[in-house]
């Protein structure tokens, strides 16, 4: 792909820039998708286990909910990092 963009740039610089921009957009979009996908799996696993724990032991629900909420936020940070990379490179 890089060789192709270099070849195109040799003939028409404007078209080469457009191709590079398209490459950046697609790559960063892919990175954001991967980040969001990984976080979704993490959150699903985390919340599933927390719900199981709360159903088994409702008296510990307060502690479980607190740590679950923080866990969700930490996991979501991974998606936000992917999103920021996406907006800085490809948006």
């Amino acid at each position: 792909m890089e060789a192709l963009s270099a070849l195109v740039a040799a003939f028409d610089p404007a078209e080469g820039d457009a191709l590079k921009a398209a490459e950046a957009a697609s790559t960063s979009g892919f990175a954001y998708g991967l980040a969001a996908f990984g976080s979704a799996i993490g959150i699903g696993f985390l919340v599933g286990k927390s719900v199981e724990a709360m159903a088994r032991q409702p008296e510990a629900a307060g502690m479980v909910r607190t740590t679950m909420f923080l866990g969700i936020a930490f996991t979501e940070a991974l998606a936000l990092i992917g999103f920021v990379v996406f907006i800085l490179i490809g948006l």
């Binding site: 976080s39 979704a40 959150i43 699903g44 919340v47 599933g48 719900v51 969700i72 979501e76 998606a79």
Partner: peptide, 8 residues
């Protein structure tokens, strides 16, 4: 659980 996942 559903709200957390779809809320995300």
């Amino acid at each position: 659980m559903g709200a957390v996942l779809f809320g995300y």
